[in-house]
Write a protein that binds this DNA or RNA. Structure first.
Length: 568
RNA sequence: CGGGGCGUAGCGUAGUCCGGUUAGCGCGCCUGCUUUGGGAGCAGGAGGUCGCAGGUUCGAAUCCUGCCGCCCCGACCA
């Protein structure tokens, strides 16, 4: 491909709207342009990478017996009403105004519709059906470029089985295929067990990528692979140790002391000697939550314990309930249910609020003074704590969901009446799984993981070009002739070359564009080196440069490219 | 949907508080000459419904009202 003829509009300046690295770089390298919030056009270079991702996915899906479909995005609303998902999706689903159609945000309904009446016998299963197609979701707030859009590309697959064992097999096939897909795309990911939410069903796992642009927060152990959404993640933290002698409780005047940090400073004590109080309202009744020191209450865990929705108490409510403002609230004299985090089980000689403004209480013994307390795991795991599985340090960070696999069960087959006959001629709903990959996110995540201050660093299977050939001053005959013949030879032997043959671009301009686009090997043809019969090679990732004689260039490049293939 | 910010040429922006030249600058673009190993120099040039609509005023990018769009934080998210 000749850059003088290719439409790859690179930008020197950063567009004001883009904030995260992948978004900035995808715009600057001419991969995408925004049409409207959360709606992006792919330009040729971006689309060529999407096609590579799709090919990887197709190969791995076909390898597990997947059969590719192409379903309509325009769906009759009535179909979605049969599974109650018009209501479930609510405003997230786009509705067509002048006919009773919706734009499909996913395709369980349509796939099940086609399975019904076609798959009639247990003998016809398992089936794995998939497609790569545009999805529409009316996101309230699209963000992070292509990562959360109103229109996006998704590979969605559905499995149909006659038994739970069959579903397990189909699920495992996808699990392994997904690992191969993301490995081949050169993406570093990890797998998190997840709650299956509105999809219904029994088991699901998410394929996640660490990124500040992510929308989920997860705890992860590098050593053993333990990974969990922070909403449910556990960590091994030492319980507060019991001191030998329990003191009597006593009031302390603590003017203007609100936070645990202020309390520790005021009394010159350690955080571990304090208990923080939070009041939540559950089922219209107050509940006091006691946490050690600055540990944060994990509201998801708390909701699981209490069963039902909770909300933090308003300031006025707190005063009414406890007689004090937040910052002076504590367990002693609290008239309602009290829960405490497991870490406080044995604790004594604790400091906590006195339920009287500007006062705290010392010498609290959980066993003696708070007898009605119930203990649960209520804290959020944090970076640096010990992994519950292997004891190594865990890390808590944000992550992007790249793929999600579900054991659906029979929700959709029951809803749409997709049944089959078993060996005994008895009727059963088909047992389903569903499996998705966000294609745009694969691209964005690759970029998020592979860039430096100069631009993107391409390597591996998604790389659009192997060689970026730069003819520095192409108006000079030797430069033109040599670079043209190098281009011919490399291209003829199947190597993918982007040839910067622009006549009026300065050397620096070409260097910076090459670093920005970041293809693995740059071959630099310049007048000075040519006088000594040399051209320069620069390895984008390492910045390493060396000169080779023109005649040896081809072999050297072959060598570099095959080295990388072996390393993979 | 709640909070905050923004909207001026293809991109990045100044000017807006305090109304008053022909709306300024950088990049990019066009023409010519020079230059050519890290985003060139000189000369000339094109390009603007100042987001949209209404209002106030002798006069509006600037003030007022309404609407639209975009970004960030939060809520939501199969």
């Amino acid at each position: 491909m000749r850059l003088s003829k290719a439409f790859i509009p690179t930008l020197k300046e950063v567009p004001a709207d883009a904030v995260i690295p992948s978004h900035i770089l995808m715009i600057r390298t001419g991969m995408v342009r925004m049409l409207s919030a959360g709606i992006y056009s792919y330009l040729p270079i971006g689309y060529s990478i999407l096609k590579k991702i799709n090919n990887v996915i197709r190969e791995e899906m076909d390898a597990i017996g997947g059969q590719e479909f192409h379903l309509p995005a325009l769906n009759p609303r009535e179909l979605w009403e049969r599974t109650d998902r018009v209501e479930a999706f609510g405003d997230t689903m786009f509705h067509i105004k002048n006919r009773d159609y919706v734009l499909a945000p996913t395709h369980e309904e349509v796939m099940t519709f086609h399975a019904k009446g076609v798959i009639k016998s247990y003998k016809e299963m398992p089936q794995i059906w998939y497609q790569i197609q545009t999805k529409f979701r009316n996101e309230a707030r699209p963000r992070s470029g292509v990562i959360r859009g109103r229109q996006f590309l998704m590979k969605d697959a559905y499995s149909f089985d006659s038994s739970l064992e069959g579903l397990d097999e189909s699920y495992d096939k996808h699990y392994n295929a997904y690992k191969k897909i993301f490995d081949r795309c050169g993406i570093k990911y990890f797998i998190v067990g997840a709650s299956s939410g509105a999809m219904g069903g029994s088991k699901s796992e998410e394929f996640m990528v660490k990124s500040d642009a992510g929308e989920d927060t997860v705890a992860y152990c590098e050593k053993c692979g333990y990974a969990a959404n922070v909403e449910v993640a556990q960590s091994d933290v030492e319980n507060i140790k019991r001191e030998e002698n329990s003191k009597e409780v006593y009031d302390i005047h603590t003017p203007d002391v609100k936070s645990i940090d202020e309390l520790c400073e005021f009394l010159s004590i350690n955080e571990s000697q304090t208990a923080k109080s939070r009041v939540y309202i559950h089922d219209e009744k107050p509940v006091l939550i006691l946490m050690s020191g600055n540990d944060e209450v994990n509201e998801t865990k708390l909701e699981a314990v209490l069963g039902g929705e909770i909300r933090p108490g308003h300031p006025e409510e707190l005063l009414e309930i406890t007689g004090a403002d937040a910052g002076s609230i504590g367990p002693l004299g609290f008239k309602y249910r009290i829960l405490a985090d497991n870490r406080l089980k044995e604790a004594n000689n604790l400091f906590s609020g006195a339920n009287k403004n500007d006062y705290h209480i010392g010498g609290i013994d959980m066993k003696r003074d708070v007898p009605s307390v119930e203990y649960f795991d209520l804290r959020s795991a944090a970076t640096g704590e010990k992994c519950v599985r292997c004891g190594n340090e865990i890390e808590v960070f944000k992550a992007i969901e790249l793929g999600h696999i579900f054991k659906l069960g029979t929700k959709y087959s029951t809803g749409l009446g997709a049944n089959f006959l078993d060996e005994n001629g008895a009727d059963h709903p088909i047992i389903m799984g569903s499996y998705g990959i966000g294609i745009d996110r694969v691209l964005a995540c690759y970029v998020e993981q592979n860039f430096d201050e100069k631009g993107i660093v391409w390597q591996g299977e998604l790389t659009p070009f192997d060689i970026h050939l730069l003819a520095l001053n192409i108006k000079k005959d030797p430069v033109r002739e040599t670079s043209e013949s190098i281009y011919q030879k490399l291209t003829d032997s199947g190597i993918r070359v982007l040839f910067d043959d622009r006549k009026d671009a300065q050397a620096g301009f070409k260097f910076n564009d090459a670093d920005l686009m970041g293809f693995p090997i740059q071959v630099i043809v310049g007048e000075k080196n040519l006088k000594e019969n040399l051209v320069e090679i620069k390895v984008r990732k390492t910045g390493e440069r060396f000169k080779v004689e023109v005649e040896n260039l081809f072999d050297k490049i072959k060598e570099l490219l095959s080295d990388w293939k072996e390393k993979k």
